[in-house]
Simulated assay, not measured.
Amino acid sequence: MKEIMNQEQISRTIKRMTHEIIEKNSNLESIVLLGILKKGYPLAKILQKNLKDFAGITVDTYPIDIKAYRDDLDTHINKVNQGFNLDKKTVIIVDDVLFTGRTVRAAMDAINNHGRPEKIELAILIDRGHRELPIRADFIGKNIPTSSKEKVIVDLEKQLVTIDE
Rank of each mutant, 00 (worst) to 15 (best):
I36W: 11
D109T: 05
L98A: 04
V94S: 00
F99P: 04
I22D: 03
E23C: 03
P63Q: 09
T75L: 12
V80L: 14
K151F: 12
A137L: 06
V91T: 09
L125A: 07
L37V: 15
G35S: 07
N112V: 11
P42L: 03
N112E: 14
I66Y: 06
K67L: 12
R102P: 00
E121C: 10
K15F: 02
L37W: 14
D95T: 00
N143H: 12
K142P: 02
H76P: 02
I4F: 01
L43N: 02
R105T: 00
R128M: 10
D95E: 15
G83S: 07
N78M: 15
D87S: 03
L86S: 08
N85W: 05
N81I: 06
K45W: 00
I4T: 02
E8K: 14
N81D: 15
D164Y: 06
G141D: 07
I21G: 03
I36H: 10
F54M: 09
L47P: 03
G40Q: 06
S30H: 09
S147C: 04
E132L: 09
I111Q: 10
L73Y: 06
N143F: 11
N81C: 13
K38F: 01
D65F: 10
L37Q: 13
D138P: 02
H114N: 11
Y69Q: 11
L37N: 13
V97C: 04
I120G: 04
E157R: 10
D60T: 04
K89G: 04
L86Q: 04
I46G: 02
L160S: 12
R131L: 11
I66A: 07
K38D: 14
I57T: 10
I46V: 14
A137M: 05
T61Q: 00
E165H: 12
D60P: 01
N81H: 11
F99Y: 14
F99M: 11
D65H: 08
